[in-house]
């Protein structure tokens, strides 16, 4: 299977170093690039609302956040973000169809109980979905399992198997396969190693994969 890697994407928009400085996570920088101004954004697993605060201030975005941790929700609300305490696995059902322009799930897909259901729900309530996840196919993960014979522990997956919040591991290939089966339109894909873009062999070299996808009916 060959993967089309979007080399040109990086040159299209000037990266905003400020986002990186403020947010410190490489996937946040790209989300800052993707999201169009004056749109409605739902951030699932919004933490203490950093990303939404930045998007509101810099892109005029009308944002909402969902977060399970009460103390993080408190911090998000205190900084002016409309966050609510809730479970991603169940939290989306209340929303009407197409309530948002973007639904963001940044590095938490592998932590949800029913990732496919979450993904389908995201595509129902959002016109587009931005999903980022740590790539379980990265060579360090593979090597760790191969050499140690134990559940891999790397910088990206630092937890002991019994403590890990990650319950559904997936690779770049896994996501591409699922997108094909589900008939999702992948509008953009970004592969990252640290803060750097990965331009070849993403399933081996990317630590984080980020996709901008939409449901098929948008283009029907």
């Amino acid at each position: 299977m060959t993967l089309p890697v979007s080399l040109n994407e990086s040159g299209k928009q000037k990266p905003q170093p400020f986002v990186r400085e403020v947010l410190g996570r490489s996937d946040y920088r790209i989300i800052g690039e993707i999201v169009e101004p004056q749109t409605r954004v739902l951030d699932l697993g919004c933490g203490d609302g950093e990303l939404l605060e930045w998007l509101a201030a810099n892109k005029g975005v009308d944002g909402r956040g969902v977060e399970l941790s009460g103390s993080k929700v408190q911090r998000a609300i205190a900084r002016g973000v409309s966050a609510y305490q809730g479970d991603i696995d169940q939290g989306l059902a209340d929303y009407p169809d197409r309530a948002f322009d973007y639904v963001i799930l940044s590095q938490t897909l592998q932590e949800t109980f029913r990732p496919l259901k979450v993904l389908r729900e995201m595509l129902r309530v959002g016109r587009r979905v931005i999903v980022a996840f740590p790539n379980y196919g990265h060579w360090r993960v593979r090597l760790s399992l191969l050499l140690s014979g134990r559940a891999p522990k790397t910088e990206l997956f630092p937890h002991e198997w019994y403590e890990s919040p990650n319950i559904h591991f997936l690779t770049v290939y896994n996501f591409e396969d699922l997108a094909a089966v589900e008939g999702l339109v992948i509008e953009r894909r970004y592969f990252l190693s640290g803060a750097r873009r990965v331009s070849m062999l993403p399933n081996l070299l990317a630590e984080v994969a980020l996709y901008l996808v939409s449901g098929t009916d948008l283009h029907a």
Binding site: G70, I77, A78
Partner: peptide, 30 residues
């Protein structure tokens, strides 16, 4: 547009009159 949080408290229903610090941060920011 809705924000929601369940604050941890031991005070029962009285908490809204008693648990001031956490409510203050929330309300000030909101």
């Amino acid at each position: 547009d809705v924000a929601y949080v369940e604050l941890e408290s031991n005070y029962g229903h009285d908490a809204f009159l008693v648990d001031v610090a956490e409510q203050t941060d929330l309300i000030r920011g909101f």
